[in-house]
Design a protein around this nucleic acid. Structure first.
Length: 946
RNA sequence: GCACUUGUGGCGAAAUUGGUAGACGCGCCAGACUUAGGAUCUGGUGGCUUCGGCCGUGUAGGUUCGAGUCCUAUCAAGUGCACCA
């Protein structure tokens, strides 16, 4: 009987859908396991062969866990808000909801062909009001919360107002944008608007002034990568740095917990390292510097407090408010010109162009340890957004300060014995401190660091600074708050309105606040975001349930927030929603959350390391603080699948002709390589007829062949339409079947490695499945499986396979289990194995990889239930032992020990092994011989163990 | 610049975690069946060899009875962060 994969796969695809085979419900009697893929953005291009890689890997794991008796949640959905649909809408007027729905339908069709065990009843879409209800809900909660640093968790904002009412800021330790100090009386004296401003400083979702790339021509904020050479990528409009009031999330409040949490989860070191890097914890000290002949003073942050005696100048960031305050009148023109010039440059330009620039303010700071006057400069190498926006410069021990000092001729004072600072700074934190203070200089209270090592000096200085009130020990993080506003249409609307200019969140019962229709998707003429075009005010819709008295009394329609949320909003808690996707009274019910807990296995690409994977962790910690998500870390284990690159093919056209020369002969001509569609090339041999049909200008193409074939060149490039190297999974499924595709994708290489897609090897996997199929049938096409006793060889093959495959799946090295199946099937065929007691477990073992064919075989063998409900076979080590005989081994003619060796080992071979291990014999006292490896006619090893 | 990852046949890759390097697949070679092969099946396939063996895991050292695996240095590729004081 022939392996008719088309018929088999169609049959089971339909049956599984009709029977809801993969539907899952909470079941307290079974242990749960939660497998999750990073859900896709449904782009117009459809899936290519790289997308399903991670889905297949996680599907295998999900099916394996189910066979192991777990209740497995394996959901799928769509990250449906995004820029491409909006851009397309601007160009065509087509509503993004329409294109998104069409793309989703196409994705679904493609996914369905690959045989995933997704529970489609739990599908979610981020653009669905029933879903973004809870995105808005979480935002609302963030607005209504502050971060209590003492309790180290988010608390309701009412607790903060109550504290202010009682004692003002006294005793409050809350994460904030700006340190504020006021008394209870002052608080009580504030009007509503002033209080709102103060609270905004503490809210976890807050309106904040941030530096953005503002493009007036487009009327929107642009991300750094949307700005090229100071103008917008689209349209070429100038872009300036601008302070704007934007919604932000106080992610920085969670920096320490985000860092600590990394130690509790099972992610790769590289991605943890990337996150640690991004969070950027640095321990140091803040020190206060008074300004000479002035009442002004300012604070700097340093990790090298020990270098205080080497400070020869101070530097302010151009954006710092201190600049205006500290600039002397005679320097004002120059300083303002400098600040203006830096404003015009984007952050990207400042990074790309590292010329040393700066300007002197005319003011001097006083070294708090020595009272020495130090000139204060302004330079763009100091960032406003980190630390305090001001630094103490120690050119001898910081390379950036060094470059600045050399450029402007400022003094360099070395502080480490024997260090050479004539060519470059000495940045290493090692050596013995000197010149601290310099001979002849007396420091405050006779303080001295001379003779200490650098780490000792850092500690000593910190202690001194704290004791003398010169500053404080401080931990800084590089992690910034997330800017949460986008001047876009196709995103979640904020549940926010403005009452007399004060931002308020809409009442909970009004959610979801639905995205209104607009007739245009561009910004409005007066520079408002596209929501300014809304024809039907979402607020009017929401107003029906609003109980806000002020609104009802005077019938005022308050303006709504016109920005929408960014892409990461909808993806930050979707894993919770899958637990209870149709709940319309909560994001997730207590029961569902208690049962599913958190994601046990999360599969996706590394590109989200510093985006989604940080935001999700933050979001989940926030919900955890609210008592909602019972586990603090959302993703227990993370596996990153590599990218599938394209493997492009080339033809070589002889210049100015329509003649194409095969790869091996191209060097004899002057040729231009041209991309050719990989789908008309097989094993690098071009289908010349298909090539002529491919495009009109190739219709009359002539070929210079080698050995009668046209051989194409190839290169690994990004998989993209323009390189004609996109391989569509539909095509592979149609030609070889989904089971072959699944096997081949896993066989291609380690899951976490990036690799080019190469259709060349796929025949091997197809042949394997056909060999497997043939194992079950006689020559006449009847089922050959019998209930005869398996032979010892049969069982040995089976148990080897069980051990190997079980281990492989646990470690995600599917690429080595596919060969194990190939070998096992080869052996069983050779053994002419017919025994159901071997073949049935074989089908179960393979079913996670090739579910369709296994389901078919399972039913042909007389089962009426799905193979998914079978039990993963139990391994038995007893069958894995080699048949052994005991043999004495002698060294130097003296018998020292006996070992078990393979039955086919000759005495001579063992003696030879012993001889080879003569030197090892010296160590034999107290050592145990574990194994003697004997290969007839070859050198042998003796394995010893203490 | 800093961090992380990876270097093994013509190609994708394995290697029981320190113990027979190159499993398995592709490709290639030979054979079988075929009118035919871009179908199928069988066998072979790291390099050199005087057929005894010898050499081989980016390069150079080291530890070890023994190293693809551990250590040091170095080169190359990829990814992430990047004036973070």
């Amino acid at each position: 009987m022939e392996y008719n994969f088309r018929e088999i796969e169609k049959k089971w695809r339909e049956r599984w859908a009709a029977d809801k085979t993969y539907h899952v419900t909470e079941d307290a009697s079974r242990p749960k396991y939660y497998v999750l893929n990073m859900f896709p953005y449904p782009s117009g291009a459809g899936l290519h062969v790289g997308h399903p890689l991670g889905y297949i890997a996680s599907d295998i794991y999900a099916r394996y866990k189910r066979l192991k008796g777990f209740n497995v949640l394996n959901p799928m959905g769509y990250d449906a808000y995004g820029l491409p649909a909006e851009q397309y809408a601007i160009q065509t007027g087509q509503h993004p909801a329409v294109t998104t729905a069409a793309n989703i339908a196409r994705y679904r069709e493609q996914l369905d062909k690959i045989g995933f065990s997704f529970d489609w009843d739990r599908e979610i879409r981020t653009c669905d009001p029933a879903y973004y209800h809870w995105t808005q809900w979480a935002f609302r909660k963030m607005f209504l919360s502050y971060y209590d640093r003492r309790a180290d968790k988010a608390r309701p904002i009412e607790e903060l107002t109550a504290a202010f009412e009682q004692n003002g800021t006294e005793g409050v330790d809350a994460a904030c944008s700006e340190e504020l100090t006021f008394t209870a009386d002052q608080w009580r004296a504030m009007d509503e608007k002033q209080r709102a401003e103060v609270l905004m400083n503490y809210r976890i979702a807050y309106l904040g002034e941030t530096m953005v790339n503002w493009c007036p021509g487009l009327g929107t904020v642009l991300a750094n990568d949307e700005v090229v050479d100071g103008v917008s990528e689209r349209g070429g409009f100038p872009v300036v740095q601008k302070k704007m009031r934007q919604w932000c999330l106080r992610v920085s409040a969670y920096a320490q917990r985000l860092l600590d949490g990394l130690d509790t989860i099972d992610w790769t070191d590289s991605i943890k390292e990337t996150q640690r890097n991004w969070i950027g914890r640095s321990e140091g000290a803040e020190m206060r510097f008074a300004v000479k002949d002035s009442d002004e003073a300012f604070t700097i942050f340093t990790t090298r407090a020990d270098t205080i005696f080497g400070v020869t100048f101070m530097v302010l960031a151009p954006e710092s408010e201190l600049v205006a305050r500290l600039t002397k009148p005679d320097r004002q023109a120059e300083v303002e010109a400098y600040v203006e010039a830096t404003k015009k440059r984007t952050e990207r330009e400042r990074i790309a162009d590292r010329r040393v620039t700066g300007v002197f303010t005319g003011s001097y700071a006083l070294n708090p340890f020595t009272g020495e006057a130090i000139p204060i400069w302004v330079s763009d190498y100091v960032l406003a957004g980190y630390g305090t926006g001001a630094i103490m410069a120690v050119p001898a021990h910081d390379s950036r300060d060094y470059a600045f000092a050399r450029h402007f001729g400022l003094p360099v004072v070395p502080l480490i014995e024997g260090c050479d600072v004539s060519e470059e700074s000495f940045d290493a934190k090692e050596g013995t401190v000197c010149n601290s203070p310099r001979p002849g200089v007396t420091a405050l209270d006779g303080f001295s660091l001379n003779g200490l090592t650098v780490p000792e000096a850092i500690a000593a200085t910190k202690r001194f600074v704290a004791e003398k009130g010169l500053g404080r020990v401080k931990v800084n993080f590089r992690l910034r708050d997330a800017i949460f506003s986008r001047q876009r249409y196709w995103g979640e609307p904020f549940p926010v309105y403005y009452k007399n200019g004060v931002a308020c969140v809409v009442p909970e019962e009004c959610l979801p606040l639905e995205l209104p229709e607009v007739n245009r998707y561009e910004p409005t003429e007066d520079g408002q975001p596209p929501l300014g075009h809304a024809t039907r005010w979402a607020w009017d819709e929401a107003a029906r349930c609003v109980t806000d008295n002020a609104r009802i009394d005077n019938s005022t329609v308050f303006p709504l927030e016109l920005n929408t949320m960014p892409g990461f909003a909808g993806s930050s808690a979707y894993y919770l929603r899958y637990m209870d996707p149709r709940n319309d009274s909560a994001l997730v019910s207590r029961e569902a959350d208690d049962y599913w807990q958190s994601v046990d296995l999360y599969v996706g690409g590394t590109e989200h390391a510093t985006g989604h994977l940080i935001y999700s962790r933050f979001w989940n910690k926030f919900l955890h603080d609210l008592g909602l998500s019972c586990v603090e870390e959302p993703f227990r284990k993370l596996v990153n699948q590599g990218m599938i690159q394209g493997r492009s093919n080339f033809v070589y056209r002889i210049k100015d002709t329509n003649t194409y020369v095969s790869l091996g002969l191209k060097d004899q001509y002057d040729v231009t390589p041209l991309h050719v569609d990989v789908n008309i090339v097989q094993n690098d041999v071009l289908d010349v007829e298909a090539f002529r049909r491919w495009r009109p200008d190739y219709r009359d193409a002539e070929f210079i062949l080698e050995d009668g074939k046209y051989i194409c060149g190839w290169a690994v490039e990004k998989m993209s339409k323009s390189m004609y190297n996109v391989v569509n999974p539909d095509y592979i499924v149609d030609k070889y079947g989904a089971d072959t595709l699944r096997l081949y994708e896993m066989f291609l290489g380690p899951i976490s490695q990036s690799k080019p897609w190469d259709s060349n090897g796929i025949d091997g996997c197809f042949r394997f499945l056909r060999r497997l199929w043939n194992l079950f049938f006689d020559a006449d096409g009847s089922l050959a499986v019998t209930d005869e006793e398996p032979t010892r060889d049969n069982l040995k093959t089976l148990h080897k396979l069980i051990k190997k495959v079980s281990e492989d799946i646990e470690e995600f090295s599917y690429n080595t289990s596919v060969p194990a199946f190939m070998v096992a099937v080869g052996e069983l065929a050779q053994q002419k194995c017919r025994s159901a007691r071997v073949l049935e477990p074989l089908v179960v073992l393979l079913s996670p990889f090739a579910p369709h064919v296994c389901e078919e075989l399972w039913h042909l063998m007389g089962h009426t239930t799905t193979v998914c409900d079978a039990t993963w076979p139990q391994g038995d080590e007893a069958y894995l032992k080699e048949d052994t005989v005991t043999m004495p081994v002698s060294f130097n003619g003296k018998t020292r020990f006996t070992v078990d060796v393979p039955a086919d080992a000759t005495k001579e071979a063992v003696e030879q092994a012993a001889l080879g291990a003569e030197q090892a014999a010296r160590y034999l006292e107290g050592m145990q011989v574990v194994k003697v490896i004997v290969v007839p006619g070859r050198i042998v090893n003796v394995v010893l163990k203490k």
